[in-house]
Amino acid sequence: MTELAFSEPKRSEDHRTRAARTKRTRTRAQILDAVLATYPGESLSSPAVVDDILNVAKLSRATFYKYFTSLEQAVEELGAQLADELTVSYALIYEDLVDPKLRAATGFQLFLSRAAIDRHWGSFVSHAQFLSRDAGTLRQIAMDLNAGIASGDFKISDLDTAIDLIMGAKAEAIRQLTRAPRSRRYIEHMATMILQSLCVSPADAETATRDASERLHLHAPARLTWWQPFD
């Protein structure tokens, strides 16, 4: 009887393919990490360029262009990844929340907490169209506002204007958070004022913000990989 033999070359080829794929994934992540660390540069008048990315990533120009056709493409991909990450963060923190006031206060503080914990993240989202009108984060805000309108917790005459108000507050708060360390209390003050702008009473706004903050700082360390305690 002829004995069948296993094909060792194929097994080695599969190993090489997996190793190459792992290397490509690691290099791509290395480039995007460097984009996050350098974008948008020291100031708006001197934005990051590819050389800045290469210096941080310690990679050649040829390697960069093997993965991305331009810095703009890398920025766009990083923005999409961060948006997906934030969507997952919302889901992990929101999963058992029903009260629209608590949801709104939690979402606002979650976003600003991310910027307080990582100033590079805050700088990137401030300048990479992350806070633009077509950003995915707007869907969550619109859902929370509509839920609050339906429940009677929020009194809003125009939804688009309310969204602009919240996004404008987020953008300015993030700029402040990236310029100098800001306290947890600063973020809570901002969230309370946002709720009051939606016609929530001062007492209810303070209660919702406090409860949301306590819950966020209690559960986030175990649920969010990027979370770091801060005061």
Rank of each mutant, 00 (worst) to 15 (best):
L110F: 08
P9H: 08
R223C: 02
I31H: 01
I53Y: 01
Q176R: 15
A222G: 11
I141D: 10
M193T: 15
A142T: 14
V35D: 00
L82K: 09
A128V: 04
V75P: 00
Q129T: 09
L112W: 02
A29D: 08
K58M: 06
E214Y: 11
A62D: 07
M190Q: 13
A222K: 15
S201G: 05
A222Y: 10
T25D: 09
L218A: 14
A208V: 04
A20C: 03
L59V: 11
K170S: 13
S113Q: 08
F124I: 05
A169D: 10
K58E: 13
P47Q: 08
E77V: 13
R175Q: 12
V35R: 00
D14R: 15
M193H: 15
A169E: 11
A104T: 09
A128M: 01
C199T: 13
L131Q: 06
R61W: 00
F130I: 02
I156C: 01
H189D: 15
F108M: 10
D134P: 00
S157C: 00
L216C: 06
R175M: 09
I194W: 12
N146R: 15
D158F: 07
D96R: 12
G79N: 12
Y67L: 06
S157I: 10
Q109I: 04
L86S: 05
V88T: 14
S123R: 15
H15K: 12
L218P: 01
I141P: 02
H15G: 06
A205Q: 05
D144G: 03
A48G: 04
P202G: 10
L78S: 05
Q73I: 05
A142V: 14
R215W: 07
I149F: 00
S46C: 03
E214F: 13
S113H: 05
T209S: 15
V125Y: 01
L4S: 11
Q196A: 07
M143Q: 12
L131D: 00
